[in-house]
Design a protein around this nucleic acid. Structure first.
Lengths: 216, 216
DNA sequence: GACCGCGGTGATAACCTCTCACTCAATCTT
DNA sequence: AAGATTGAGTGAGAGGTTATCACCGCGGTC
């Protein structure tokens, strides 16, 4: 959060009301999912009439987009903080899992089912790139084994604009991508409840995937 | 599909209209997502008035549940057919990828963001178990390497009710779970468009993950 | 002290799901 | 064959939603 006490009193009030609206929206999404977010319900709970909210957000879409942006930023900040505390790849994985379990709907806001027409604004892809840079840093650490790059790693080396100029070697690019997709595979199925009646402990599956990732 | 020409003319008509409603719903979901499914719009496109649809489905939820059930069944049937044609683990993986790419929204109907309150009916978890059984069959094929089961595999061996009495060895249980989560990790991110601006070919990432899975 | 910007309101339009009373035709029974 | 019953379809309507509009009144500004 940037300095709370900036600007004119009007601007401060406006920022405070915007934050309060977002807070109610987060609460509502956490309990009933993003599709059940209702501007009217938020307004009523804040003691205002419905149309008043349109002074603060252009519509439902803009409010949700704002929450998505916050979720991306929260993930990026959490990752950077963990990396700043000296977390290695395993540490980042556990950071990611904790972040996901703390608020599953926030995770789905970032990685969940997309709406076909929707295109994320440019700045959230930039925030996602920040997150990826942290992962790439952690992946570049361990030394590559002897063998040359595989065919896929050569392909990644030739299409590395998504790395944003990060100087990671091809094997690290591959490792970062696997890190992302494998952890997401376990986490998304766990949060979606697909492991619910199965009996085993999702945390152990997560740990096993992580082991395979770092041991390889 | 069970025999189309069964029962009284009334029942045949009813089944036909139900199928037509579901067809329009699928179309609508494929282009705008499940959250944009509108009973009124379907009714209008079929030349009926809104409330007429409630003769065929108790409400929006039941229609969506029916589509989810169909999606699960389609996946299970596709898997069984592939296994019946002698597909190994790699063949099943490509079957899964083709099935997902053919209709991304259908994939999200099964593996997408869940609605917090919603609980899937018992029969879809049964269909999911059928699918898992096919995967377990394919995983039990390759002989285990020498070493004994890891700690996680011992845990899986002690909590194997999700395997439905399948006699797969502990290593196969682990392999099946990894197969599922890793492919889902790549597929869901690809279908959600998270690889869109990155430049590399998702098919190659999928193949690389599959390679690691079968080579291990 | 006059003025303008902005927050908030009620009314309204256009959707949505879903219920109800009712009509009418097809089917089944006697 | 005539009557009774079942079920499909309708229009009206309740209650919810997003979103726009004209209007009111207060606070900060010139």
């Amino acid at each position: 959060m940037t300095q709370a006490g900036t600007g004119t009193p009007r601007e401060r009030y406006r920022a405070q009301v915007r934050a309060e609206i977002k807070e109610h929206a987060r609460e509502q999404i956490a309990t009933a999912g993003a599709s059940a977010l209702s501007l009217n319900a938020i307004a009523k709970r804040m003691g205002m009439s419905g149309p008043a909210l349109y002074r603060y957000f252009a519509g439902r879409d803009e409010l949700i987009t704002e929450l998505v942006r916050d979720a991306y930023r929260s993930l990026a900040d959490t990752f950077r903080a963990a990396a700043g505390s000296g977390a290695d790849l395993a540490g980042l994985a556990h950071t990611m899992r904790s972040w996901a379990l703390a608020d599953p709907q926030r995770y789905f806001l970032v990685f969940g089912t997309p709406v076909p027409g929707y295109h994320a604004p440019a700045d959230v892809t930039q925030i996602a790139a920040e997150t990826m840079a942290v992962i790439l840093d952690a992946c570049a650490g361990p030394a590559d084994e002897g063998g040359g790059p595989t065919a896929f790693e050569a392909h990644l080396d030739g299409h590395r604009q998504w790395a944003g100029g990060h100087p990671a070697p091809p094997a690290a690019l591959h490792r970062a991508l696997s890190f992302w997709t494998r952890l997401h595979g376990v986490l998304s199925l766990e949060l979606a409840g697909h492991f619910a009646g199965m009996g085993f402990d999702p945390a152990l599956l997560f740990a096993a995937e992580l082991d395979d990732l770092t041991a390889h």
